[in-house]
Deep mutational scan, measured.
Amino acid sequence: KNAAKIVNEALNQGITLFVSDNKLKYKTNRDSIPSELLEEWKQHKQELIDFLTQLES
């Protein structure tokens, strides 16, 4: 999976991924984040940080 797909899947579940101080963060109104999503974010962390940083610049 690529970073764009992961970010879109998160958005579809009401979760916004973003970068703050070079760290991957998220915002959501959900009570909890599915563990498989958290695991996927960890596996692709640097790719996600790079992707989101490019989007914001």
Rank of each mutant, 00 (worst) to 15 (best):
R30L: 14
R30S: 07
G14K: 04
E40V: 13
Q54K: 15
N8W: 14
Q46S: 08
S32F: 13
N2M: 10
P34V: 03
Q43R: 14
K42E: 15
E39M: 10
E36S: 12
N8Y: 13
D21R: 06
D21C: 07
E36G: 11
A10I: 01
N12Q: 14
P34L: 04
T16M: 11
D31R: 01
I15P: 00
K45A: 14
T28V: 04
V19F: 04
D50P: 03
E39Q: 12
Q54Y: 11
K42P: 01
K42T: 11
A10P: 00
G14F: 03
N12R: 07
S32E: 11
T53N: 11
V19W: 04
A4S: 11
K5N: 12
S32T: 13
T53I: 14
S20G: 07
N29Y: 12
Q13P: 00
L17K: 00
L17R: 01
E40A: 08
I15Q: 01
Q43G: 06
S35Y: 12
R30V: 06
K27H: 13
L11D: 04
E9M: 05
L24A: 01
A4L: 08
F18G: 02
D21W: 04
S35M: 14
A3L: 07
S57R: 02
L55G: 10
K25G: 11
S32I: 10
K25S: 10
L52S: 00
T16V: 15
G14H: 05
V7T: 03
H44C: 06
V7K: 02
K45S: 13
N22K: 08
K23Y: 06
I33Y: 03
F18K: 02
K42R: 14
S35C: 10
Q54P: 07
V7A: 04
L48P: 00
L24S: 00
E47L: 11
P34G: 04
V7F: 12
I6G: 01
H44I: 04
K1G: 12
L52Q: 00
K25I: 07
I49T: 04
Q54N: 15
T28F: 04
Q43K: 14
L38C: 08
L48Y: 00
L37Q: 04
K5P: 03
V7C: 05
K5D: 15
Q46F: 07
L17C: 01
K42F: 15
T53M: 14
E47W: 03
Q46E: 12
L24W: 01
T28M: 04
L38Q: 06
L52W: 01
L38I: 12
K23E: 15
L38T: 04
N8T: 14
I33Q: 02
D31C: 07
E9D: 12
S20M: 11
Q54I: 08
K42M: 14
N12C: 08
K1V: 14
E47K: 06
A4W: 12
Q13W: 12
S57A: 13
E40R: 10
N2H: 12
E36R: 09
I49M: 07
T16F: 10
K25F: 14
K25P: 00
R30K: 10
H44M: 08
E40D: 11
N2R: 12
K25E: 12
K42H: 13
K25L: 13
A4D: 07
L52P: 00
Q54A: 15
P34E: 05
I49A: 03
N22T: 06
S35G: 10
K27C: 09
Y26T: 03
F51A: 02
E47V: 11
Q54G: 12
K1T: 11
H44Q: 05
N12G: 11
L24D: 01
K23I: 12
K45L: 15
G14S: 05
S32C: 09
N29I: 08
Q46K: 11
K23R: 08
P34Q: 04
V19S: 04
E39K: 09
S32W: 10
L24C: 02
K42V: 13
N29F: 11
A3P: 13
S20L: 09
L48F: 01
L55I: 10
N22S: 08
D50W: 11
Q54R: 13
E56P: 15
F18N: 02
G14A: 04
